[in-house]
Structure formats: structure tokens, C-alpha cells
Design a protein around this nucleic acid. Structure first.
Lengths: 193, 193
DNA sequence: CGTATAGTTCGATATATATCTAATTAGATG
DNA sequence: CATCTAATTAGATATATATCGAACTATACG
């Protein structure tokens, strides 16, 4: 369901007169003047609202002689009701992932400044790992980095590159061999983002 | 659920920007500037819409530091979705009665003029009975009517009182005894309205 | 064909509101 | 306390729209 249809429908029923018309029609079809009478409004006003209700298929009509009976299109109402319901329902797994992401994003928001630099290293281990993983996202897997090259990269985030580099190693995000650094396979540290 | 709350809610979500905010928050909480960024709007505009969304309890917020995270209030969304669903759902019996009533009303609209007088007697038996029953509603059960009195009553609806009076008898709506007329018990002709 | 009735269209008016820029407030941090 | 960032408020503008009375259209009926 595209956004525009939803917006048009809700905008249309988000009016006291139109919602009262819908409630009336929910009890059975009525002709225009009957609606005008029950609501204390003039026929042109009712025509105006019925026009809008027809635009979103909330009502349909059947002519009988020269009076027109208006009916509530219940299936359309149900349709949008369930579309609305869907906006509040997400499958469990997806929802949990989203929550996790939101939590991580919050930590990142807190510890990185607007220019993208790390303000300071979190004391809490869990948050520290999130911060380290965020920095690691800029490195390519499989690529070999010289120590100087890695230091330069880290310095874009934080002046104390030595601490960060050491954290990379002791938390098993990277390994070092003969002064050459490389990312460990992601599976080893269950990267999420 | 009172009408005003429904109207306010639907009016609120019947706006493209606000519905987009709701869709975003359905995927997880966000802070104001993140919303502004994703939608390409300025923070004051987002504040404006969040204010309206809060008014109808569609969102709530949690402060963390000086950034405020906004959450979709899913239970409220569900609440209004089911209220909307109710507008299209009626229990079967009630619905059938309403349909019957609407059908009868249509016949009455067609055969009685605005001043309440019968234009002519329907040829179709089913419609004729509806018309007769409509006229009978003005009589009291248990009361005994003299012929002249009954004629006068019928004449308020139709000049040819003799025909109508005869129809009352042959369709078993009334019975006559020594020139005195009386309504038959309702059960005998399954009065609906 | 003329008349009556139901519905629609038109034009005017009053009200609401979505959006922006600029200024202000609130909290956190050094 | 000074400063930074996020959010809000205020004011301005442009657009949308709910309602009505008056004029018009369509259908039925005699």
C-alpha cells in the first residue's frame, strides 16, 4: 500500500462531519437529504463531503428514481484498518534487530562528535566494543595494513591510536603478523552492523 | 470511543509528513534530527509534527542526555485501527435488520409525499404491505374504532379510505365485529418497524 | 412539456495549518 | 561559568478547506 493512498484516506475520515456520515451509513444506506437533516447541515455541504468520501472509495451509491442512496463501503474501511494495524506490527526477529540497531546507534551518537571523531573511549565493555566496531567499518577485509598506515587511519577518529590499535588486537578484531595488520574474519566477532 | 478522539487521531495521521514519521518510528526509535535528516525537513517542522503526534498519543519519548528519542506508541495505533475496523463491522442480525429497515424506508420514501400522504397504492404486494403497515402505526392496539372514526384516520393519508380499510381486513391487520374495528395482535402479522 | 424534488456546482468567506528562518531554551561537558 | 548541541518557540507566509446561499442539472410524474 503506498503512502499517498493511506494519507488521503485518513485525511478524509479525519473530519468530524465525514466521520459522522460514516457512522450513520454504518447503520444502513441513506439518501443525501436524510444525511443533511440528521447532521443539521445543508445539501451542498453534504455533497462536498460525499465527494471526498467517494474519492477514497469509502462510500458508493445507488440511484433509485431521483434519490440517490449512499452506502458505506465496508471492505474499504476494513482494508485501511488493517493497513493501520500493520504499522504497529512487526515480526519479532526484525523488531529485535531494529531495537539492537537503535541501541547501538544511541551509543555511537553519544561517543562520536558531529565531525565523526571519537570523544573518548567508553569504560563499559559492551559500549567500547560498539565503538571499536564502528571504527573498524572503515577497513577492508582481506587487506593487509602496515602499522603506520593503520595508525593514520585510526588517527582520523582518535588521537591516541596506540590504545585503539591495542584494543583491536586484544578483542580479536584484528591480528598482527610481522608488523602487518589484517582484519579477522567477521564471523569471529559476530559483527552486526 | 467518542467521535472527537477518532477525528483527532485520523486527522493527525492524515498528513504525509506525519505518516512518514510513523513509518520511520515503526522500525525503531529515532531522535529529532535523525528524523529531520531522513525526511529532508528542518527541526522546527519535525517538532511541529511530533507535537501533534504526541497530542493523540501516537508517540512517546525518552530523554537520553540532551537528545530525545521518539518511540511509536504501537498499542495506541492498534487501538484506533480496531476502532476503525468496528465502523465496518456489525453483527449479522443487527445488520440484516438494518438492511430490511433501509429497504422499507426506501419504499415509504417512494410512496409517501413530503406532507406524509400516500401518493398511490403500490401494485406489488410486498410494497403494499409495507405501506399499509406504515399507516397502521398511527393506530393504538387494543383500542376499538368506529367505522367513521377509522375512515377519518385513513383519510389523513389517502382519499380512498374504503380501499385501504378493506386492505386492512383482507390482510388480517384488523378485524371487524358489529361495525367496530380493532387491530389484530402484532404477532399475527410480524410487524417489523 | 411543466412542475416538483434531489443533487450538484459556483463563488465567497472564514478558518486552519504546514513550512520556513530566526531567536530562545534546556542539558551536558569541560 | 562558557560552550556546544538538540529541541522548542515565535512569527511570517502560503496553501487548503469547511461551510453556506444562489444558481443550475437531472429525474420522475402528471
Amino acid at each position: 500500500m503506498q503512502l499517498n493512498r493511506l494519507v488521503s484516506f485518513f485525511k478524509t475520515i479525519g473530519d468530524p462531519t465525514r466521520l459522522r456520515i460514516i457512522k450513520l451509513l454504518a447503520e444502513g444506506p441513506l439518501h443525501g437529504q436524510a444525511i443533511a437533516g440528521k447532521l443539521g447541515l445543508t445539501p451542498p455541504t453534504i455533497t462536498h463531503h460525499l465527494h471526498k468520501l467517494r474519492e477514497v472509495n469509502a462510500v458508493y451509491e445507488r440511484r433509485d428514481g431521483n434519490t440517490i442512496y449512499f452506502y458505506l463501503n465496508e471492505s474499504v474501511i476494513k482494508h485501511y484498518a488493517s493497513a493501520l494495524m500493520d504499522l504497529s506490527k512487526q515480526d519479532e526477529v526484525k523488531k529485535e534487530i531494529k531495537d539492537l540497531m537503535a541501541e547501538r546507534q544511541k551509543v555511537i551518537d553519544n561517543f562520536f562528535a558531529n565531525d565523526g571523531r571519537l570523544k573518548h573511549i567508553p569504560a563499559q565493555r559492551k559500549k567500547k566494543l560498539i565503538v571499536l566496531e564502528h571504527i573498524l567499518k572503515g577497513l577492508q577485509k582481506g587487506k593487509k595494513y602496515g602499522e603506520k598506515e593503520l595508525n593514520e587511519y585510526i588517527k582520523k577518529f582518535y588521537d591516541d591510536y596506540a590504545t585503539i590499535r591495542r584494543e583491536f588486537i586484544i578483542n580479536n578484531y584484528m591480528y598482527r603478523e610481522n608488523g602487518i595488520y589484517e582484519l579477522n574474519p567477521e564471523e569471529m566477532w559476530a559483527k552486526i552492523e
